[in-house]
């Protein structure tokens, strides 16, 4: 493995996913190691987002196995809600709760799931807001924020549960170009702090700069994987070469 991070955090074995009769994931094997930042790139319709959404079972897999921290989440006996508490997710469309203030958005899960008292959650929320540079917006509603600000709040909300894995599903794709940077900066900081991250992205600059490993997906499979240098400077697979020629 290219990365020096060796403790396996997520293991995916022979993952298949069908939507009706349409096979979107055609047998994926992958491992993600603790502290690793893995970017998943590839053309639209390649199954990147579906793959990511299988990792916390927002998408039910058709067959195969996903093991997270030694919990087989495909096992019916494993409480998926408990596993999800340790996996933060950030969505393309932010999905903030529009009827709650920014602070309440962040506090909701830790309080409802009895991870923290109200007071602890509030402190945590303010801490996280400071970290994403939005302390002064704590009482605002999501609708009053720009897209970039909303996405930073969404990251803070996911971090409030103290997850040790973060999933990002095209976090900058719905943003105006001038707001992409502020979100990527927060993500870079997170990566530098050693968070295990799986990022589906079209931001090739980010993938090259931040990731330990890049997975290239096409047609429901991982076509090629390697360090950013390997993938971007010396791609072996024809599909990878073709894709990179179009996007770079």
């Amino acid at each position: 493995m290219a990365s020096d991070k060796t403790k396996e955090k997520i293991r995916v074995e022979n993952l298949h996913k069908y939507f009706d009769k349409n096979e979107v994931l055609k047998g994926i094997d992958a491992s993600i190691y603790e502290g690793e930042v893995v970017c998943v790139i590839g053309p639209s319709g390649s199954g990147k987002s579906t793959f990511l959404r299988c990792l916390n079972k927002l998408e039910e897999l058709t067959s195969g196995k996903i093991v997270i921290d030694n919990y087989d989440i495909t096992d019916k006996k494993v409480d998926i809600n408990k596993v999800r508490e340790n996996i933060g997710m950030v969505f393309q469309q932010f999905n903030l709760f529009p009827n709650m203030t920014v602070k309440k958005n962040i506090m909701m899960a830790p309080v409802e799931l009895k991870k923290m008292t109200k007071q602890e959650a509030e402190e945590k929320a303010m801490q996280l807001l400071a970290r994403v540079g939005l302390s002064e917006k704590s009482e605002a509603f999501p609708g009053e924020l720009s897209g970039g600000q909303q996405q930073r709040v969404a990251i803070a909300r996911a971090l409030a549960m103290n997850p040790d894995i973060m999933l990002f599903d095209e976090p900058t794709s719905a943003l105006d170009p001038e707001m992409v940077g502020e979100v990527l900066d927060v993500m870079k900081e997170l990566a530098a702090e050693g968070m295990t991250m799986v990022v589906v992205t079209h931001e090739m600059g980010f993938a090259r700069e931040v990731s330990d490993r890049v997975l290239f997906m096409a047609e429901g499979g991982i076509m090629e994987e390697g360090t950013p240098e390997q993938i971007f400077d010396n791609p072996q697979n024809e599909r990878t070469q073709d894709f990179l020629r179009k996007v770079l």
């Binding site: 809600n81 508490e85 469309q93 999905n95 529009p98 009827n99 899960a109 799931l113 549960m161």
Partner: peptide, 30 residues
Amino acid sequence: VPKGQTEAARSLGLPKGKTMMKVVLPQALK
């Protein structure tokens, strides 16, 4: 209520019932 609201709540670890009571119903009522 957009599906993303449910997904966001479930991804945080909220069980189905709590997601309905805390996230979906308040918005649905509106």
